[in-house]
């Protein structure tokens, strides 16, 4: 199998996580991992991001697969059921809006900036070293802390399921993956019935 340049996108994911330890403002870059997948599936009607460009998926393949940090066992079947995948997506989005709400509170001066990163929605880890003041308003910094919390949380969850199950177990219940698949489902409705055979659109 030929190596492509996008096979190295795991470096991007890794660098992103590391940068957050030094300056929280880099967390804003993570918005790319939110908008690009959605944009690609809306435009192409495929999961092109997952199938080709996702750095996180590649990172799990590398650590769990090549480096062998995975038991490579089957995931409990409930994880791949729609109720769980959609349920986790709703939970994830709720947490996302809660984070936006916190950003709003700081924006409207109802609350002051909290320099913590919340891991697994529970553990508040002091993270003050990653912010020493900037020209940016407090709300933008609060958003960075909130967004980085989400990215770190999903990485930690992904790493845990990587160790216990297959390397890319996270992809089974990843909210971005569920969302892009949902977009593809909606887009292909109607079009599906007319089709008689597959067009082999290779990826």
């Amino acid at each position: 199998m030929k190596k492509h340049r996008y096979d190295y996108l795991w470096i991007f994911s890794l660098v992103y996580l590391i940068l957050g330890f030094f300056n929280i403002l880099f967390a804003w870059i993570g918005l790319l991992c939110f908008f690009i997948p959605l944009f690609l599936s809306i435009v192409t009607g495929t999961k092109l991001y997952c199938n080709r460009y996702c750095g996180r998926g590649r990172l799990f393949s590398l650590i769990g697969g090549k480096l062998g940090l995975s038991r490579k066992k089957d995931i409990p079947p409930f994880v791949r059921k729609p109720w769980f995948r959609y349920g986790f997506l709703i939970f994830f989005l709720t947490m996302f809006f809660l984070m936006l709400w916190n950003t709003w509170l700081v924006f409207s001066d109802a609350r002051s900036l909290k320099e913590v990163v919340t891991v697994l929605w529970t553990f508040k880890v002091p993270w003050h070293w990653a912010y020493r003041g900037s020209i940016f308003p407090d709300w933008a910094v609060q958003f960075a802390f909130g967004f980085y919390s989400i990215m770190l949380t999903s990485t930690v969850l992904g790493l845990i399921t990587m160790i216990f199950f297959k390397p890319r177990s996270w992809c089974v219940y990843c909210p971005m993956g569920t969302m892009t698949q949902l977009i593809c489902r909606l887009k292909s409705k109607g079009g599906m019935k007319r089709r008689t055979d597959f067009d082999r659109n290779r990826i």
Partner: peptide, 11 residues
């Protein structure tokens, strides 16, 4: 029905 379309198999 329960495929996540993640594409790990393709790779």
């Amino acid at each position: 029905e329960e495929c996540a379309a993640c594409g790990c198999c393709v790779l």
